[in-house]
Structures are given as C-alpha cells and as structure tokens.
C-alpha cells in the first residue's frame, strides 16, 4: 500500500482541477437556480408556481446519477450534440442541487415574519422592492445553516479534497452565518468547539 501512495496521490492531484471547476461551477449554478426556483414557487402567478414546482419535484425526485446519464448520453440523441463532460457535470450538479436549494430558499423566505411584509406595505414599497429590499436580506441569514452542509456534502467527491473543502466550507459558512445574524441583530448561534460539529455523509 505505502509504495503505491505516490501513484495514488498523483492521480488524485490530476483530477483536482476538474473537481475544483466542477465544484465552483456547480455551486454558482446551484445558487442561481435555487433562488429562481424558490422565488418561483412563491410567485403571484400560478403558471410560474407550477413551473418551479415541477422543476423542483423532477430533479429532487430522480437520482443524480440518472440525471448525469440522461444529460450526457440521452440528451445528445435528442438535440444532436454532446456537452463537454465538465459542463454536463456542472449542469447536473446545478440542476439537482438547485432543486433542493429551491426548497431552502422558499422556506427561508416564508420564515420572515408577516409583520415585515406589512411594514414594507406601509412604507409603500412595490412587491419587488418588498422582496428584494426587506424580505430576502433577512431570509438569506436563514438559508445559511441548511445551505452549508448541502454544498459541503455534495461537491466534495474525492476524499482528500472532500476533507479540506468540508473544513473550509464549514468555517466560511459559520463566519457568514454569525456575521449575517449579527447584521440583522440576532444572537449568533453559540460557538461550538473548533470543528466539533463537522459531519460528513448523509445526503
């Protein structure tokens, strides 16, 4: 085992760049789709609500591997061209976790007290201003705790990278969470021992 370590390590390193790009691209797409789906499910328009709901249910209800298979092998038969493997990976990561994230966004937005909506109406904000100036800034703080593990668990594919990433994301998300909580004047969650609560697995 130990004499193979160099070989193993170098092949892990070879995949590292791809993993980093897939991770970053996937996270970016996840965030965009999560907000689109989450706000879509709360839309005033029935058609938009339905569209968002169908997207979320389909991508949450099927497995990521099946989605990868479809995007990479089946889609080319339908549209006539094949995606670069990395892009196919990013697309599936984004679509899949965007659907989960959509529920997180929806839940966080709905957790902002009704009084805040009413205060915003009394200030005569338009519906979009109410959402983007008053409700969402408060909802984002609620999204931090569930988003952290989601991003962490999903994108660390390789073990070594997974550990580093997990530690980094935990630290960054904790910092963001407590900064966010402080900003809207809520007590930050009590400090746990350094990394004591870091857990892996359990998708």
């Amino acid at each position: 085992m130990s004499e193979n370590f160099g070989v193993i390590f170098s092949s892990i390193l070879d995949g590292l760049t791809t993993t980093i790009w897939a991770t970053l691209g996937g996270i970016a797409l996840t965030i965009v789709l999560a907000f689109a789906a989450g706000l879509g499910m709360l839309s005033r328009w029935l058609a938009v609500r339905w569209l968002a709901r169908i997207y979320v249910e389909v991508f949450r209800g099927t497995s990521e591997v099946v989605q990868l298979f479809w995007i990479f092998f089946v889609l080319p038969l339908l549209v006539g061209f094949r995606l670069v493997p990395l892009f196919a990976g990013i697309l599936v990561l984004g679509l899949n976790h965007g659907a989960y994230g959509g529920e997180i966004v929806r839940g966080a937005v709905q957790s902002v007290p009704k009084a805040q909506h009413e205060g915003a109406i009394a200030c005569n904000f338009s519906p979009a201003q109410r959402m983007f100036r008053v409700i969402l800034p408060q909802a984002v703080v609620e999204m931090m705790p569930p988003f952290g593990p989601d991003i962490m668990v999903i994108y660390g594919v390789e073990l070594a990278f997974y550990l580093v990433l997990a530690i980094l994301i935990t630290i960054v998300m904790r910092a963001l969470e407590s900064a966010g909580a402080k900003r809207i004047g809520r007590m930050p969650p009590p400090r746990t021992k350094f990394l004591a609560k870091t857990q892996g697995g359990g998708v």
Binding site: A122, V134, Q138
Partner: peptide, 17 residues
C-alpha cells in the same frame, strides 16, 4: 393610494437589516 397613508404598528415592524 398608499402615498396618503402611514401606519405605526404595535410591534414597530422596523427592518432589522
């Protein structure tokens, strides 16, 4: 219509952000 009307609430409803 709301431009003519202002309201102060029991629980203040200030924007914490």
């Amino acid at each position: 219509a709301r431009k003519k009307i202002g309201m102060v609430f029991q629980q203040f409803n200030l924007f914490p952000n």
